[in-house]
Design a binder for these strands. Structure first.
Lengths: 203, 203
DNA sequence: CATCCTGGATGACAAATGTCATGAGCGCCT
DNA sequence: AGGCGCTCATGACATTTGTCATCCAGGATG
């Protein structure tokens, strides 16, 4: 009885390659490949998948939200997150969303099939280095608004732009930016954005 | 007589998966896998490879420089660039560095093996959409110094930080930033950085 | 030699940004 | 009820940015 696997990753080449790699395993069967997060839960139900392998960064519905959707729609299906960036915050959020495993894209390929099997067996799979880092770099200190303002600031617009996007007064935006800079330790707006992104605090 | 292929990509999972995918093809043989650009030229010579598949974004030596190194060390070996980001500037630079093909990571997986074969046959392979975009968005308008200052600015430091990194006076840095903003069309420093990055003007 | 051009620097000025204190409204917790 | 934290807002202020004119040293070029 082989493991029925659904794969979601926005890069077609990577997605296809992962499918090919895992399809070689005798005990794994890739039953669906998706390019974004929106259809994952449906696909899991439709193909009665055992494991869903999700990328965190995806257009449309992001991987963490997709993980939550899968857990809700099919509680028996385990979720394994695969991501490019080892952002500490991602790990924690993914776990809270019900994921069973979390691996970074630069772990050896051999371990991937094994990770799928462990997750399927009900075990948890976490990159040890990342787990340690995740513990030291606690939860996001940012409030929802602060994160939202930082996101709006991340493409380099002026305070006026951000204010318009967030429907706030300019003064308020500067206050939130100031608070965010204090909490992240950044000395400029741009640095704060970078630090928050690196920690996975912007979702 | 199968095609001897070298693969370089910094994400181990992707690298392994690509190797597995292409290794399935009867006429392709993966003879080496590298995690960065530094050893690529040597590997190509050592294994007398026919085609080198290189990621643009890599630690150490970047893919474009690696491509040039390969062409120099083994002119008979063709280079196929594979990248996550479809930056117009990357394409042009890669071609100038002697690459024969350029594909984005979200092209269908089926086409990859075909791209390798075409490149091996001496043909050029270029994503048509990207080629068009590349033509419209001419060369980088930035001078070397402007690009350097933008790079130094890209992690969000203050003018003082940039000045120290670039060994320039603060006033000069602001002049270059101002010029770069005018040329990129950005209205803030951060926006200029983003625009230049999106166009592949920062290497 | 005179001249032009380029990279780098300076100084001044207006606008944008970062900081702080302050206040009001709201929900949540004890 | 009272206190606490988050949200949103003002206003004032010191810095930092972005803009511009200008200047200077040194190649290149005539």
């Amino acid at each position: 009885m082989s493991i029925r696997l659904v794969i979601a990753d926005d890069q077609a080449l990577v997605r296809g390659a992962l499918a090919a790699l895992l399809g070689l395993e005798p005990d794994i069967e890739v039953v669906a490949e998706l390019g974004d997060g929106t259809g994952v839960a449906d696909a899991v139900v439709e193909f009665s998948a055992d494991v869903a392998m999700l990328d965190v960064e995806m257009p449309g519905l992001d991987g963490i939200s997709a993980a939550a959707a899968v857990r809700k729609a099919a509680p028996s299906c385990r979720v394994l997150m695969v991501t490019t960036f080892g952002r500490p915050g991602y790990l924690k959020r993914a776990m809270q969303a019900g994921a069973s495993g979390f691996v970074v894209k630069d772990t050896p390929a051999r371990q991937l099939a094994e990770a799928v099997r462990r997750v399927h067996r009900g075990l948890r799979v976490v990159d040890p280095a990342l787990a340690a880092e995740s513990l030291t770099s606690g939860d996001s200190p940012l409030t929802e608004r602060e994160a939202q303002v930082l996101r709006a600031a991340s493409d380099g617009g002026t305070v006026a732009d951000i204010a318009k996007a967030a429907m706030l007064s300019e003064g308020t935006v500067r206050n939130y930016l100031s608070a965010a800079m204090a909490k992240t330790g950044g000395r400029t707006r741009a640095e704060a954005v970078r630090l928050a992104e690196d920690n996975g605090w912007l979702l």
